[in-house]
Design a protein around this nucleic acid. Structure first.
Length: 589
RNA sequence: CGGGGCGUAGCUUAGCCUGGUAGAGCGCCUGGUUUGGGACCAGGAGGUCGAAGGUUCGAAUCCUUUCGCCCCGACCA
């Protein structure tokens, strides 16, 4: 039993200007966290309790999924990272620890980095321990503070520079076992997020720089999310928009025959798809070719999509480049001989085809058949461009962003798109990290042949999950904590703390509630009732038990669930047993 | 890193355009009256106006620089 007057819950009536979204405001107003610096937060006592609850649920479900907890250092020797496959891709987001002591020299490369995740550490760590296939089939995890120097921290704990993460890593002897592990952990994730009281979906995801065979993200639908999720209500297909495909292009599509000779025409001032779609040209966006240049690993390449489509940059990684960025105007001119607005990929019109590592066409171009594109000359476009005959494409691929309403690739029903918060991500990694001779994880198989462990990695943003719960479960009065993670599950609102009879009863009921398995907070402050009710609502305690002089006279106390509107009066004589059974019922759900 | 906005008491903010030495609400402290949904009265403490430089007799206010925060974009394991 915790007395309010003896803990520290600094609630705020107004929300600080730093917070924009509801969950962030409530984190601050309910006295859960305080900002220390940009993207850096301190957990106050109440916040720490929720964090511990979420952490414990995570631990239980990981353990149930046969994962083994360990703890690695957050400070990691840089060398370890440089040997891994991601150094160039992630060094920018890593905090680098340069040196210690007044006389220490600042080295060109930092000696240490603060871990954003731990593949580079655990792979050699476990790799140097294991040697036999008999040691395979292990999954490790840790719950730890992680560091990423986010370009733009925002929304409180949602995207912070320092945050708490559960990261897990599995080592299996072969693909089949690795997939079984993957599915076992996926089930643990399902249980974890369900126990946190979240509505969530798991979606097919882009593996990003982690690479690997496949991956799923755990998404909490919310307007303030950073990701777009594509889903089909009909068949359950769901994927991150970075990965999602649609049935827009029929599998049996037949390419259109040319409808005429190429014909250049003047388009003064028309440098955009929109302009060409208007008077006097009237060429619909879905009859235009959009020609875009990117640089992948320092090599220029071209992607052509329909004028009405957007390139999904994440999908370009399927082309095999590690680092991809849009090309600069100068780079474009050198290869194409023209500037954006007049670009086209028609054979023979490019200034220097040899500067291009490839020209890739989106599959949906085939829906156009014959269309319009830039002539690689200022203020000139070309019509009657036939996809097969005229475009200088190396190959087709899926490079476009799926749009709402397109047919589901599985069921053909219209796809929906929703914003969501990514709270977990699991990857089947394969041998990307393990196959390194020195820093990898090799083992001898039954035939005494050396093999790389087939790995998987599994992340949960613990602190982000905490905020996602608030984002999904609040009203205008405050947070509505699910029973499982509430900082306290029961608050006894003592309206007249000086009344001995009331204080005694509060104690009796508090003891009974704790015995039934609830954590109890007693509001014994010398505040007016309104203040106590408002605070109880704000900090979101699931069950409020009100004890006041007025009720005592009538022999009753009051029960109020945070997620229900009605209050319930209970005779004092029956109170402890009613409360105890209500708590047991909640706890068993 | 580009674009925009904001820095005045613990929190929310007025004042800035048009320079004259800072005001309110909440919170906090004291006393009193209150007491079932953020009470009332009286008194009180609390501000180098983000920082530095400049203009001026005089700067929260005008100018320059700088730092921090927030938003949009880019980015995002």
């Amino acid at each position: 039993m915790q007395f309010w007057s003896q803990t520290y819950i600094p609630t705020l009536k107004e929300s600080p200007a730093e917070a924009e979204i509801e969950s962030h405001k409530l984190l601050l107003r309910a006295g859960l966290v305080r900002r220390v610096g940009g993207g850096l937060y301190a957990f106050l006592p109440l916040g720490k309790r929720v964090l511990d609850n979420v952490t414990e649920i995570c631990r239980e479900e990981m353990n149930r999924g046969q994962a083994i907890e360990l703890l690695m250092p957050a400070v990691i020797p840089t060398e370890q990272w440089k040997e891994g496959p991601r150094w160039n891709a992630v060094r920018e987001v890593m905090f680098q620890v340069i040196s210690a002591g007044k006389d220490a020299k600042v080295p060109e490369e930092p000696q240490y980095v603060l871990g954003p995740t731990h593949e580079e550490v655990i792979t050699p760590l476990i790799g140097s321990e294991i040697s036999s296939y008999r040691d395979m089939g292990k999954t490790f995890y840790q719950i730890q503070t992680k560091f990423r120097n986010e370009i733009r921290p925002r929304y409180g704990l949602m995207r912070a520079r320092e945050f708490i993460m559960k990261d897990g890593y599995s080592f299996d002897a072969n693909d089949e076992d690795a997939e079984a592990t993957y599915h076992r952990i996926a089930k643990a994730y399902d249980r974890f997020f369900a126990r946190c009281g979240l509505d969530f979906i798991s979606v097919e995801a882009d593996a990003g720089i982690m690479g690997g065979a496949f991956s799923h993200e755990y998404m909490v639908p919310a307007e303030v999310g950073d990701d777009d999720v594509v889903y089909c209500q009909e068949c359950g297909y769901s994927a991150n928009v970075e990965k999602a495909t649609s049935g827009l292009v029929p599998r049996d599509i037949v390419d259109a025959e040319p409808i005429g000779e190429l014909e250049k025409f003047e388009t003064p001032g028309a440098k955009t798809i929109e302009k060409l779609a208007q008077e006097p040209y009237n060429i619909p966006a879905d009859a235009q070719f959009k020609t875009l240049l990117f640089v992948g690993d320092e090599k220029l390449f071209v992607v052509v999509v329909r004028g009405c489509d957007q390139v999904e940059e994440a999908k370009l990684s399927s082309l095999g480049y590690q680092l991809i960025r849009p090309a600069t105007v100068d780079e474009i001119f050198e290869a194409m001989g023209a500037y954006p607005g007049s670009l086209g990929a028609i054979k023979g019109t490019l200034k220097d085809r040899s500067k291009l590592d490839g020209i890739y066409g989106d599959e949906a171009l085939r829906l156009i058949g014959n269309g319009v594109t830039g002539a690689n000359e200022k203020a000139m476009h070309v019509k009657n461009v036939n996809v097969r005959r005229d475009l200088d494409l190396d190959r087709f691929g899926d490079f476009r962003k799926v749009q709402e309403g397109e047919p589901c690739p599985k069921s053909g029903q219209p796809l929906k798109i929703a914003r969501a918060i990514e709270v977990g991500h699991i990857f089947k990694l394969g041998t990307k990290f393990s196959e390194n001779e020195k820093f990898g994880a090799m083992f001898d198989d039954a035939d005494n042949k050396s093999q790389a462990a087939v790995m998987g990695c599994y992340g949960i943003g613990i602190s982000r999950t905490l905020q996602a719960i608030i984002e999904q479960s609040h009203d205008k009065w405050g947070i509505k904590w699910p029973w499982s993670v509430a900082p306290y599950q029961v608050v006894i609102t003592l309206l007249d703390p000086d009344l001995e009879e009331a204080a005694t009863l509060a104690n009796t009921i508090g003891v009974a509630a704790e015995a039934a398995g609830a954590s109890v907070l007693v509001d014994d402050r010398a505040e007016r009732p309104g203040v106590k009710f408002k605070d109880a609502d704000l900090i979101g305690i699931p069950l409020r038990i009100t004890i006041g002089g007025r009720g005592l006279k009538n022999g009753v106390i009051e029960l109020k669930w945070r997620d229900e509107d009605d209050k319930q009066e209970v005779a004092i004589a029956k109170a402890t047993s009613i409360i105890a059974s209500a708590i047991r019922e909640k706890a068993s759900n």
